[in-house]
Design a protein around this nucleic acid. Structure first.
Lengths: 240, 240
DNA sequence: CCCGAAACTTGATGCAGATCAAAGTGCATC
DNA sequence: GATGCACTTTGATCTGCATCAAGTTTCGGG
């Protein structure tokens, strides 16, 4: 696999400038952040941070998908977070984390030295308030996910997952089409995400395909052919 | 059930003064909070906030236990948060919440008008930074919980739950004793907490009792008689 | 002290999803 | 265009927990 070239982007041109932790910052504040930032890239599958490892940086995810995973002694694993562009990695005020962070796809991060970032955080309400919002949003997502893990059937879990992909990849300008979407993960990773086995994931995806709810062009690309049926299958009341 | 009397506490005497959202505030800042605070009490089982209801207050939990619960259309429910003294209720910047908040035991809240609180939040780094910490702590707890819901067996779930109760009720000065502890919930509520049925909760608690890991004085009070065995049974590696 | 409801326990049975096993598919490399 | 490997699908079987169904204990109120 070829090394991924380091890139540099000015904050003005940054694709997550308006949503990341820095989104509320003034030009002056951005300039301060710019001084302590460095870009780093990771190939799909590469570890970004290990559980328990001393944590000397925090970061915004600029491009790609990463995941947070917890592992039990006997090897059972559960994904506990999915990071998309503009999500924040790392925890100010704590020098280690309680899970592994891994690149799901190729990933680019905008990294900040942790101590320098914490100093800035304590002096910059625009930064700390945005970080709080991001944390509260993640908490909301975690709670939906807990309902899914605790109470949904395998079919509902798969439907909820696919529906989430559809919702978040929905471009406002192609709302009515059935855009081709990508599964950013293997069956095994989806299973870890949903608290299932990979065989069950495969069977349930096949079932949705046979029912005409989704259709696959290849293993990683599909489109939603019956959005209403998909929403019904999630078990949520979003379709009402 | 007799009405629960309203109480008033000066912030100096408040039992959660050093841990709640206000813990970092200066005397001046506390004085501002004091002006917009009111105490409210709820009896065990009473609803505190309903999902979707317009949210005009936020609050710190002063005394008792409350829970956050999500319910599906067909009645399946999953607890998604357990609130203990000093925990924060409500979400600044959002006028409604996506779950119900219910008093698990009798509860006392220190309530703030939401808009006034938000204004104060934007002007008071000591407040917003503490709220961020509370949110990040809750996020850590939510992630442990996700591993439990997604991958642990019924036995491991029950052991983890009991171990958590033991850990958090542990007074530093009686570390070596086996203090009598209280189950703050019914079997049904524990089941909703752990993603199980109440029958399974009952069976697993009975199993731990028969094995001599815990012993009950009555249905709501027990002590841990073999802490090491309990920790082994959680499936976590905390005992290593 | 008795009654009734709520909370809890225990037993029998069923099933969704795990586990075990094997075959199929796509794609990178030689 | 053959080889090997990672990923996926499909089938057969097993099992942990849900579900269904009685009982039992606890406790508040008349």
């Amino acid at each position: 696999m070829p090394p991924i070239p380091k890139i540099h982007v000015t904050c003005d041109a940054c694709p997550i400038r308006h949503r990341a932790v820095c989104s509320r910052c003034s030009d002056d504040e951005i300039a301060l952040l710019d001084k302590i930032k460095t870009y780093r890239s990771f190939a799909a599958g590469e570890p970004i941070l290990w559980r328990g490892e001393p944590l000397d940086m925090v970061a915004s995810l600029v491009k790609g998908v990463a995941n947070l995973t917890k592992t039990m002694e006997d090897g059972r694993t559960q994904m506990v977070g999915l990071l998309l562009p503009s999500d924040f990695i790392g925890r100010p005020g704590r020098s280690e984390i309680a899970f592994d962070v891994t690149a799901t796809t190729d990933v680019t991060l905008c990294c900040f030295d942790r101590l320098a970032f914490e100093k800035l955080l304590s002096e910059t309400p625009n930064l700390s308030q945005r970080l709080m919002e991001l944390a509260l949003d993640e908490l909301d997502a975690a709670r939906d996910w807990m309902l899914l893990l605790g109470r949904k059937t395998a079919r509902e879990k798969i439907a909820s997952f696919v529906e989430m992909l559809a919702r978040r990849s929905q471009q406002p300008d192609i709302l009515e089409a059935n855009p081709v979407m990508q599964l950013p993960m293997t069956r095994d990773q989806i299973a870890n995400f949903l608290g299932l086995t990979l065989e069950t994931v495969s069977r349930q995806l096949t079932a949705l395909k046979k029912e005409g709810v989704i259709s696959f062009s290849d293993r990683r690309h599909f489109e939603v052919t019956n959005l209403r049926a998909l929403k019904m299958a999630t078990g949520d009341d979003t379709f009402i």
